[in-house]
Amino acid sequence: MSITAEHGYTHAGTHERYGYTDLSRLMGMMTGDEKHGPAATSTLDVLWVLYDRVLRVGPERAEHPERDRFLLSKGHGPMAYYAVLAAKGFLPVEWLPEFGSYDSPLGHHPDRVLVPGAEIGSGSLGHGLPLAVGTALGLRAQGLHAPSVWVLIGDAELDEGSNHEAIAYAGPAGLDRLHTVVVDNASASHALPGGIAARFEAAGWSAETVDGRDHEALYAAFTASHPGRPHVVVARVEPKNA
């Protein structure tokens, strides 16, 4: 998905200073009392493919009305998110070593007021998908039909009733600019028959399940056509306690 010049914004990769192979080093700069390392590493590949190849947003147009919106609902363990934002020029790499310190803008949960490029404050389970539904509705009401809304959630968030309501609403509402990525590391307490994708499909969503470490499979799933329906990609990664 490319970005055209007439819209006044550019692809996230335009000002790329670092590549995928640098992300481990960038994450390694963030030390301190962080309890959610597996939560961070589980999202790394999804985040990279989105920001490197899919999302129409960049640091120089982070407030442009026609930008894509990315909402990180899985905000606990945000080191991978910060590393990708730094790699793409949204925030200075020099901020990373101060992660989690008293006066650092990079907290253990992202703060939309403090973190450049962050669309929401997150970390409380179950909030991101309902916020994404509201964002998609708001853009539609404003007549902004080009921007896509993306939200990344964890499979354990599907234990929350707020997400069930958001899933049930978005399908019949035909929110085809809404995209959800579920990073599945087998953390959910209440698995459903047929798996995660079946839950969304029953509510009228388009759904695909892929290897969450395979960049080409992720890209193909992210860019799959889904006219008239919201789209979910279930990205399976290694179990949290593996």
Rank of each mutant, 00 (worst) to 15 (best):
I3V: 15
T4P: 00
E6H: 15
H11Q: 14
H15W: 12
R17L: 11
Y20G: 00
D22E: 15
L23H: 14
T31W: 03
D33M: 14
A39W: 01
T41S: 07
L44C: 13
D45H: 12
V46W: 02
L47Y: 06
L47T: 03
V49K: 02
R53V: 10
V54D: 02
P59W: 09
R61N: 14
E66F: 05
R69I: 05
L71K: 06
S73P: 01
S73E: 04
H76C: 15
P78I: 01
M79E: 08
M79L: 12
A83L: 08
V84S: 05
V84N: 01
L96S: 07
Y102I: 07
P105V: 05
P110M: 02
R112G: 04
L114Q: 15
P116V: 00
E119T: 09
I120R: 14
G121D: 09
G121N: 11
G123L: 06
S124F: 10
H127M: 10
H127S: 05
L129I: 11
V133L: 13
G134V: 10
T135Y: 07
A141Q: 15
Q142E: 15
Q142L: 14
A146E: 12
V151T: 13
D155N: 08
G161E: 08
I167P: 00
R177N: 15
D184H: 13
N185W: 13
S189G: 09
A191S: 15
G194T: 02
G194S: 02
G195D: 12
G195Q: 11
A198H: 07
E201M: 03
A203I: 07
G204A: 05
G204Q: 08
W205V: 01
E208V: 10
T209W: 02
V210I: 15
D214T: 11
D214P: 09
Y219G: 03
Y219Q: 11
G228W: 04
G228S: 07
R229F: 04
P230I: 04
P230D: 05
H231P: 01
V233G: 02
V237L: 09
